[in-house]
Amino acid sequence: MADASVVRAAPRQYAWIALMWIRAALAYPASFWTLTVAGAIITGLDFVGIAIMFTTIDTLGDFGLREIALLYGATGVALGLADMAIGSVEQIGHHVRTGSLDTMLTRPVPLLVQVCADRFALRRLGRISQSAVVLAWAAVPIDWTPARVAVTLMMLVAGLGIFFAFFVAFSCIQFWTADASELANAFTYGGNTMTQYPLTVFPREVVLSLTFLLPVAFVNWYPSLYVLGREDPFGMPSWFAFLSPAVALALLALAALAWRTGVRHYTSTGS
């Protein structure tokens, strides 16, 4: 099954399919640019909303606007990249219903590569750059050390990995109930919205579940505390800041398992 040559070929195959969709999208430049800008505006208004909150308050959950901007930017970039790279995986149910999944199964490219690269949307760069701008603004007052730079980069990569796993794992539910695509949103976009705020706004039990049960806290919260040089308000150990890559890897492994189970279910029931 997943022997070395298949794995090695996958990124190239993904790039071919994605490139074809990029070319197709750029054939209508006006449409492409409106969608890109609209995407940036939609997520931008999210942040404007938070900024407006700060016209009446100075801190939210004991965090200032710049500090929240770091959380917001980090989770936004991570989710945006994951969404652009593999967000199409949410369309599994659609592929099942229309039978295009069967077509994909008769092609010599791993199914996950085909599903993820399908309708690759370069326009999502709009949202990613908007988040990146907020992140850059947040970075200005930070006292940068090599370790903080390293943790920030690690945070973005691990965050991407965690959202990547969420997209795949929760989309797999559609192998069983084809019309439940919105369920994954609760975890992907919901996880993103949740981590836009400092976790101090939530009760302790919620933070514990976001750490141990559905570990979105590792997308940005723990690494950001380190970068901001803050004590953990919930008394978690400070080394949690470096745990994000391990969490991401574990979740990716679980997502791979969910994917294989889903595909096996499909090929053994044909529905």
Partner: peptide
């Protein structure tokens, strides 16, 4: 149902298949 990419010209579909296969 078609095995081609609905929104793309035939030529693009064929070229992609060349690479895939």
């Amino acid at each position: 149902r078609t095995t081609l990419w609905w929104d793309l010209p035939l030529r693009d579909s064929f070229e992609l298949l060349q690479k895939i296969y």
